[in-house]
């Protein structure tokens, strides 16, 4: 294959990765932005989404598309519910202390991982794509499903943005983010907002996982990479900045895709980590973040 088509293929692979990464990282960024909680268990919410997607698609009879559609709705809801419970049962009792919540979410990480190992097992299992339409280029064929993933992620991100900027609950979330005490003085139930934000962040990771699982297979240890990459993306984009997070996800996703194809995946990770180090040294608030008040 010539260089041009090869670059096109690498770019498309990178875009798929960027799409899933953007969804996952926006969830992490939202939780940090509003609650100031560094959620180390975020990758496990991603994993739970994928594992649950396998259970749901395996138990819904009929065409694969039906089971997949069910998974797309049910998995984020269940994972969001689990997250809300974890918030109420653990994070709230720690009064959202920054250090204590890091340790607590490390604990959650292992609980979710071991629960998945016990209930789902150590195997990687595939989920069938809802359709296997292929886009035929002159040089290679490409999975139409992968392109659908990019489109679905873009739509979901747009939806999150509209929710935050246009809706009442979004307004309440932003007010809580800026000043928790004053929000309380104006009748905002901060505990409920926090549970909702934690659930929403987890649900975004879960929906990203449902989208990726026909490409990648579900496995109980699959949460590690998304967690690391989400942190990379969120640090580069600026903690709490949605626009920065999405742009950084595209940057990291594309460079990862392209460098992996032309050189090696290891070099791609080295470059991403180097970029994080440079951002932390020269622009610690991230490319689009604002300095902490």
């Amino acid at each position: 294959m010539d260089f041009g088509p090869f670059l096109l293929l690498a770019t498309m692979e990178g875009l798929v990765m960027a799409a899933v990464l953007a969804l996952t990282a926006v969830g992490l960024s939202l939780v940090f932005g509003v609650m100031r909680v560094v959620n180390v268990a975020h990758g496990e919410f991603f994993m739970l989404g994928a594992v649950l997607a396998w259970f749901v698609t395996a138990s819904v009879p009929g065409p694969p598309a039906l089971g997949f559609a069910a998974a797309l709705v049910v998995c984020p809801l269940i994972v969001g519910g689990i997250a809300a419970l974890a918030d109420r049962a653990i994070l709230k009792r720690l009064d959202y202390d920054p250090e204590a919540t890091i340790v607590a979410t490390i604990g959650l990480l292992y609980i979710f991982q071991q629960a998945a190992l016990s209930l789902y097992g150590p195997d990687a299992r595939p989920v069938q794509a809802p359709f296997d339409w292929r886009l035929q280029f002159p040089w290679f064929g490409y999975s139409g499903y992968k392109l659908a993933v990019v489109a679905a992620a873009a739509l979901l991100l747009l939806g999150v943005r509209q929710l935050l900027v246009r809706s009442r609950i979004g307004l309440v979330m932003r007010a809580t983010q800026y000043d928790r005490e004053t929000a309380t003085a104006f009748g905002i139930d901060v505990d409920r907002v926090y549970a909702l934000v934690f659930a929403l962040g987890a649900a975004l990771a879960a929906v990203a996982a449902v989208l990726i699982v026909p490409i990648q297979q579900a496995h109980y240890l699959m949460g590690g990479d998304p967690l690391l990459l989400s942190f990379i993306v969120v640090i580069i984009g600026g903690l709490g900045s949605l626009r920065g997070t999405v742009l950084a996800a595209v940057l990291i996703g594309l460079s990862d895709g392209i460098v992996s194809v032309f050189f090696s995946p290891t070099l791609a990770k080295i470059l991403a980590t180097l970029l994080v180090a440079l951002v932390l040294v020269f622009r610690p608030q991230g490319l689009f973040g604002q300095r902490a008040a």
């Binding site: 009442r168 307004l171 309440v172 932003r174 007010a175 800026y178 000043d179 005490e181 004053t182 929000a183 003085a185 104006f186 009748g187 905002i188």
Partner: peptide, 25 residues
């Protein structure tokens, strides 16, 4: 309640700050 130092939701617009007040009741 009008807190000391005003404590506005500084990154929200004037209209959004008022909306928070309206929503309370």
């Amino acid at each position: 309640y009008v807190p000391q130092g005003r404590r506005l939701f500084a990154e929200l617009t004037v209209a959004e700050n008022l909306e928070i007040g309206l929503m309370a009741r």
